[in-house]
Every structure is written in C-alpha cells, then in structure tokens.
C-alpha cells in the first residue's frame, strides 16, 4: 500500500479541484487514474468534498464510457474498433480474445488478471488493426497473435510475483 489512508488520493483530487469551475469530471478522472475505476466510497467522498449531489456524480459516471464503476483486471486489453481497425478485421481479434480468455467484451476474467474492452480509435490508424494492453500498443494484429499476447502478460505477472 502506497498510502496509509485508502482515500488519500481522492482527498487530494477533491482538494485540488473543488474550488475550480467545471472540475467534477477532472476530479473523477484523477481518481480513476489512481485506482483504475471510481469506487462507490470515493464517489461519496467527492459528493461531500465538492458539494455535488451523489446522484449527479453517478449521472456523469454512467453517461461517459470512459469511467469504470468496477475494478478492472490487472491488464486492461483495449481492442480498437475504430473504422480503420474494423475494416482490417479487428472484430475477429476481439472474438479471439473472448474465446481465449473466456470472457465477454466489457468484463474481466475471474482471476482479475485481464479486463477486455473495445475502444474507438487510439489514433494510430496506420498500424491497424491495433490492440493496446496497459499502454503498450500492438500494431497489425491478427487473431493468431492473440495467444502469445496473453501469454506475454501472464509471464509479466508471474515474474512480478517471483520478485515479490
């Protein structure tokens, strides 16, 4: 645990943004950046700290695709479904991920290692079809690459555990 108080990142986000205008979404972004999603307790903290009704916070959280209400897996697999990637067959890559991981798009594996999601354009259409896993971009992907990509991250996590 980096912080002794579980909500300290949130407390800082609230402090930073509460006096600024048009800042609710920014504060929520900051929380999600730290925690990977916006937990219920943190939404409550924002409500109290920034003086915004909780209902309005959830109105925002559920309207925008970017915000997550549940903890994603350790590795977030984003399969780009922008036009160029669609045209070059990324739907098949997504299906392959669903098959290999045994989950549906938008959900996480039971061991919470992987979260599979589709996104709309990550801005490197020249490399289509594109998959991004925790910030690392894979270009010109085919369904046959899927297994090795998953294994790469499984190994990453296995090594982490070894070190720990």
């Amino acid at each position: 645990m980096a912080n002794s108080s579980p909500n300290s990142g949130t407390a800082m986000a609230v402090k930073k943004w509460k006096k600024k205008r048009g800042s609710l979404i920014m504060a929520l972004h900051e929380i999600q950046d730290i925690k990977g999603y916006v937990p219920w307790e943190d939404a409550q903290e924002v409500a109290v700290g920034m003086g915004v009704p909780l209902a309005r916070i959830y109105e925002v959280l559920t309207f925008y695709n970017y915000f997550k209400l549940e903890a994603p897996g350790k590795a977030v697999i984003s399969v780009c479904l922008g036009t160029a990637c669609h045209l070059k067959g990324n739907d098949e890559v997504l299906k392959e991920f669903e098959k290999e991981l045994g989950v549906k798009e938008g959900t996480s594996t039971e061991d919470k290692l992987f979260h599979l999601q589709s996104v709309r354009c990550v801005g490197c259409c020249g490399l289509a079809p594109v998959v991004v896993i925790n910030g690392k971009t894979y270009g010109k992907v085919t369904p046959s690459n899927v297994r090795s990509m998953i294994e790469e991250w499984q190994n990453n996590f296995a090594n982490e555990t070894d070190v720990a």
Binding site: G22, I25, M26, H29, V60, Y64, N65
Partner: peptide, 27 residues
Amino acid sequence: LEVRLGAGAFVCGEETALIASIEGKRG
C-alpha cells in the same frame, strides 16, 4: 487557458454538449 478532458462521448463534439461537459454535466 484551462484544460478539461472528455470522457468518451462522441456527442460532446456537438458544441452545446461540449459546453455541458466542461460544466461537469452529462454531455
């Protein structure tokens, strides 16, 4: 200048929706 981030809503490209989003509301 101030920077405000979108949060994955295509409709926010529409100017009145974009304004609502900067104000911290649904777009």
